[in-house]
């Protein structure tokens, strides 16, 4: 089944086409979400939400664009939603702490360990992922899409619905920020 046939079948509500879409793209979606949110369970949740969204809004998919770009875009939007949800939880926790209530949420101090890393690179990568967590969210997304997922700047611009110069600026700032964070870490 080629790309065009798959889209047509998806738009017709074909279950086998949807199963194929999930099968072919689950690692791509999961890996992107995993690097951005740095939590396996949350990334799994986001992956499910991405495919549900894809299933529900396949009718709005424009035949001219790439299916992977569209899925990346949904993933990025879902990770942004996730971040907003986390911020809401933080605010709620803060308000609850003001009134003396104890929140059950544990502080996540676990070092993120990506399952696809080579053993000898695990230590350096852990430092990089920790630095990645500290830079602005859009820079993190652009860096992840380029460095981990191997997307070109043009493709990132399409995914993030922005211009090529904006992506270049985002990447440049991301690299500078990451170098600063890494430098601070290694100096200590």
């Amino acid at each position: 089944m080629n790309h065009q046939e798959l889209i047509i079948k998806l738009q017709q509500g074909d279950d086998s086409a949807f199963a194929m879409l999930v099968e072919e793209n689950q690692d791509m979606v999961y890996n992107t979400a995993l690097v951005i949110v740095q939590n396996a369970d949350d990334a799994d949740d986001i992956t499910q939400e991405v495919f549900i969204q894809a299933y529900q809004s396949i009718s709005s998919f424009k035949s001219g664009s790439k299916l992977s770009t569209w899925l990346y875009r949904i993933t990025v939007n879902k990770t942004l939603d996730y971040k907003k949800k986390m911020n809401r939880k933080k605010r709620l926790g803060f308000v609850q702490s003001l009134f003396g209530a104890h929140t059950n949420e544990e502080v996540r101090l676990i070092v993120f360990d990506h399952p696809g890393l080579q053993l000898e690179k695990k230590e350096s990568a852990a430092v990089l992922f920790n630095a990645l967590k500290q830079i602005p969210y859009k820079q993190r997304i652009a860096f992840t899409l380029h460095k981990i997922e191997g997307q070109s700047y043009q493709e990132i611009a399409e995914i993030m619905k922005t211009t090529l110069p904006s992506v270049e600026a985002l990447m440049s700032r991301a690299k500078v920020n990451l170098k600063n964070k890494l430098s601070n870490y290694y100096i200590q």
Binding site: Q26, D44, H114, P115, L182
Partner: peptide
């Protein structure tokens, strides 16, 4: 720093838990 920045080159993709379609 360069070692850390290059540590994610050629990284393999992670996979979600099994039975993703069923869970969806």
């Amino acid at each position: 720093i360069n070692e850390a920045l290059n540590s994610v080159d050629n990284i393999n993709r992670g996979s979600p838990k099994p039975f993703l379609l069923t869970r969806i």
